[in-house]
Design a protein around this nucleic acid. Sequence first.
DNA 1: CGGCTATTTGACGATTATCAAAATTAGTGG
DNA 2: CCACTAATTTTGATAATCGTCAAATAGCCG
Lengths: 252, 252
Amino acid sequence: MMNLNSRPGRIGTPCLACPLRMKPAFEDKTDDEIRFIQAMKTDHRSLKAGSDIISPDQESAELYTLFSGWAFRYKSLPDGRRQILNFLLPGDIVGLQASLLAAAQHGIEALTDVELCVFPRKRIWDLFVRMPNLAYELAWLGSREESMIDDNLTSVGQRNASERIAALVITLYRRADALGLVSDGSFDFPLSQQQLADALGLSLVHTSKTWSKLRKAGLFTISGGRLTLLNPRLTARMAAVYEQSKAPRPLI
Amino acid sequence: MMNLNSRPGRIGTPCLACPLRMKPAFEDKTDDEIRFIQAMKTDHRSLKAGSDIISPDQESAELYTLFSGWAFRYKSLPDGRRQILNFLLPGDIVGLQASLLAAAQHGIEALTDVELCVFPRKRIWDLFVRMPNLAYELAWLGSREESMIDDNLTSVGQRNASERIAALVITLYRRADALGLVSDGSFDFPLSQQQLADALGLSLVHTSKTWSKLRKAGLFTISGGRLTLLNPRLTARMAAVYEQSKAPRPLI
DNA sequence: CGGCTATTTGACGATTATCAAAATTAGTGG
DNA sequence: CCACTAATTTTGATAATCGTCAAATAGCCG
């Protein structure tokens, strides 16, 4: 499923004018910092939906920032069962764990067509030496990802099927909203039910039944790959999720 | 349940002679690095089993290294359900996520009596500026923790009750073994069945039944708070867990 | 319009949860 | 050290949730 459609022509796209960085979801950076990031970036890569970004057991992975599209991290058992660990949206760091630990313990796959900013693994060390503030923010982003996995683990371990779906929907909604991807309560929702099931720790059939039960209950509708959240309040209450911080976060 | 039994007298215990650091589980550090760590350490604190190390929703947490004893991270839902996210053993970093994200999204509780090396939050920044290698290792330790949570999520999402227990037992066995805490296949196992259940995402009753089923199947025995792993091979196979790296890791 | 994949539905079975109570263990004070 | 209480663990019975199997329907792409 590899599809390395590199477009070196876009390497030159100035990070100073990065449209993602303009969004209010992200913290401001100094020009110095942005220039450093730009110098660290060696490629701007496009991959088709379904491609491996990092394959399981890959050694020495590159580090990426997801520029556009969705991806997910997953872990497989020897017999084929698969757990989706978390979803990645634009601005998220991709492959930090794999870069630091040297041997990836998981795979990362493009959920939609994606564009990635590529940072070679070797330069991460440079970043720690020369840009402690960026290093700190990298660690911050790592902790943020861990926090999201904590939430998923709590969901899968403690919530029932309906609650898990409600929690996933409201969480993705909020994340999409922070990126300005929500309009009129609806946003692109590219997950198949198999992927939903793998993320929720449920069977495909049970996911389908619960999914349609919640639609019939009026929580949300889905059509044309877009999800419309009709009742955010009820959805959040059903999921028993807490508010999340809306403060801007670092973008590297 | 707070029990802040500070023992400033031990602050002076030289990190250069730290008995934990001597263990082969940990990487060697330069004297410079160790001296920096020592300077950063402001206290050596003892807490009773059951104490909060970091309470849920606590802001501005300190950073610790677990010097002795066990602890666990957990997350609660509003109605009281609780998920134990991971267990902490000597040498593990405690509260990194809470320190970086400013507002803890989880609680950390002492499972046994513990001793902690205390590092004030403010000095983490110093560490990033002055000791990039230590900063890198801090990030590395964060990624290692995330990797362990990935495993737990995969367990809870994909494995059945027996497999989950087998996976937890073999994983804790290996971690204890790496620290030299295993002798004749047995090690201290301080978890109550309620804690087991909360970690596995199972009910207390089902945990008890499955637990005793595996004992009767000859995987392990337990007595006097010590667990003896009788059949590591079978346990690992039942859990379908992969090998873990046995390379030394950083200790901060 | 086919042929493929994804989703939905129904029937049934297995796993896990809940309830209640007994048995065991741990903790406390005399 | 014993007696008593409280907490933890175990067991049995029953119910709910979720998984599996199989087939039908719907959606998608050439």
